Amino acid sequence: MSLRDTINNDVKEAMKAKDTKKRDALRLLTSAFKQIEVDERKDLSDEDVIKIIQTQIKRRNDAASQYKDAGRDDLMQTELDEIAYYEVYLPKQLTDEELESELKSIIEKVGATSPKDMGKVMGAASKELAGRADGKRISTYVKALLA
């Protein structure tokens, strides 16, 4: 069963359980899938679905921080709840130690020696660690390792 099918089944389960928050959050996610399918005229693979979920999580994080700055804790909590529903579908995230060791091997592979080589490392790391680590986290570690 594909990731998309799993999400669609979870929408149905949320409807049966009358869990409106989860149902609505997952419906927003499925509408994002449909939007991409229509715009790009393609069927989504599991990798595409993961990228869309990551994008949606990033948007929710940005919105939550803006709501927090505006003093709207109720809306911030809604965004954080949606993030929690979405993170279930992502692959297991790397721990700090795992991320650091993976990045060290990537740095060796591309032959990076200075901060000037960050672009090469980031390109390789983004492909290799897609879905398992956030781009901002990868960037932070690469800067520290190349410094």
Rank of each mutant, 00 (worst) to 15 (best):
Y85Q: 01
A63H: 05
L80E: 13
K143L: 08
L44T: 09
Q56N: 10
I50F: 06
S45T: 14
Q35W: 13
L44Y: 08
Y85I: 13
G131C: 09
S105K: 14
A124Y: 07
N61K: 15
D10N: 10
I138C: 01
G131Y: 03
G119E: 10
A32T: 08
S114L: 08
M76G: 02
D73A: 14
Y67H: 03
Y67F: 05
L94C: 07
A63T: 10
A147L: 13
D117Y: 03
R60Q: 05
V11W: 04
V142N: 01
A130T: 05
V38C: 00
K127W: 08
D24W: 03
Q56M: 13
S126N: 09
D81H: 01
L28Q: 11
S31F: 11
S126W: 01
K120T: 06
M1Y: 15
K16V: 15
M76S: 07
K120A: 14
D10W: 04
K51R: 13
E128V: 06
D5A: 15
D10L: 04
T55C: 04
V49R: 00
I138P: 00
N61Q: 15
S105T: 15
S45V: 03
R137H: 12
T78D: 13
I53S: 03
S65V: 13
E87Q: 15
L28H: 11
S126F: 02
T113L: 10
S2C: 14
I57H: 01
D62L: 02
G111I: 15
A112Q: 05
I50M: 06
T20Y: 06
A124P: 02
I52C: 11
P91M: 11
T95F: 05
P91W: 05
L90T: 00
D43R: 08
L94H: 10
T30H: 04
K22M: 09
R27W: 08
I83A: 00
S2P: 15
K34P: 00
A63N: 07
R41N: 08
Q54F: 00
K116P: 02
A147S: 14
S2F: 15
E102F: 14
K51T: 01
G119D: 12
I53C: 07
Q77I: 14
K68M: 12
L146F: 06
L99R: 01
A125I: 05
T78A: 14
I107T: 05
E82V: 05
D96P: 02
K22T: 13
R59I: 03
A144N: 11
D48T: 07
V88C: 00
L90K: 02
V110C: 09
R72C: 06
A70P: 02
K12A: 05
D24I: 14
L29F: 08
Y86E: 04
Y141H: 06
I57F: 03
L103M: 03
L99H: 03
L29C: 04
D10A: 10
L129M: 04
R60P: 00
A130H: 09
F33D: 00
T78Q: 11
M15H: 13
K58P: 01
G111A: 14
G119V: 11
A25H: 04
D96Y: 10
N8C: 08
E98M: 02
I52N: 09
E128F: 09
A25T: 11
K51C: 02
D74P: 05
N8S: 11
E97K: 08
S101D: 12
D39K: 09
K34N: 07
L3S: 00
K34I: 08
I138L: 13
K143R: 15
S139V: 00
Q66V: 10
L80K: 11
E102D: 13
E97C: 04
K22Y: 02
K120V: 02
